[in-house]
Design a binder for these strands. Structure first.
Lengths: 112, 112
DNA sequence: CAGTATCCAACACGATACTG
DNA sequence: CAGTATCGTGTTGGATACTG
């Protein structure tokens, strides 16, 4: 991750982007929003992501205080990921952006 | 840019990220929001960006229909960049995310 | 099951020089 | 002034094999 895009006084956007930037974190938020999920479940929902990258992204979101990781001492091991309150608030803030993308889906798909 | 992060049915977020992803486009939106600006002005406001990268980003935003490029046939040449209506609407959608980053600045700066 | 360890490829970014 | 052309580099992501 490219922490703090070299701009003078980091605006809120910079911080947000540092948190959810990259190819998968946004999709991850989308999956996590539906409730606690296990590692394998996420992999299946986010078709195309490698184990390495998924693990990395989860660690980063965890470090940012967005995701909570609950390890159950069982055999076989079980781990559940969920959003923290901060993560929930981020999801709220993300909603308008998603709505925007939906509203302009036609126009954008044609151009990108 | 990483168009269409390989997920089945692209959610609105994917589209939005494809548009404003990368290190500089968000900051660019921030600068453009204040009104028409010239290439050199943008360079000075976004300290650290190279001419090449700035030009690339502007071209991409232009292609996405977010930015309008107005060329004045003068000597020396003058070019002004501004937000299109679509760009303005994107800015609106971005606002909550920025507000979120501002609200949680303390907490995030410590973690990232 | 839930990861970690490696290795590799693609690409975004950066620095610099040059042009209409 | 407003770019384009080139070249080099670091980071991100992908594929695969292996482990507690």
């Amino acid at each position: 991750m490219e922490t703090q895009s070299g701009v003078d006084q980091p605006c809120g956007m910079s911080l947000a982007i540092d948190v959810v930037g990259g190819k998968w974190k946004m999709h991850l938020m989308w999956v996590l929003a539906e409730g606690p999920v296990r590692f394998g479940q996420i992999r299946r929902k986010l078709e195309g992501v490698s184990e390495k990258v998924l693990a990395e992204n989860l660690r980063q979101l965890e470090a940012s205080g967005i995701v909570h990781r609950e390890l159950y001492a069982e055999v076989p091991p079980r781990v559940e990921y969920s959003l923290t309150p901060l993560g929930e608030s981020l999801n709220q803030a993300l909603a308008p952006l998603e709505a925007w993308g939906d509203r302009n889906r036609e126009e954008l798909s044609a151009r990108i």
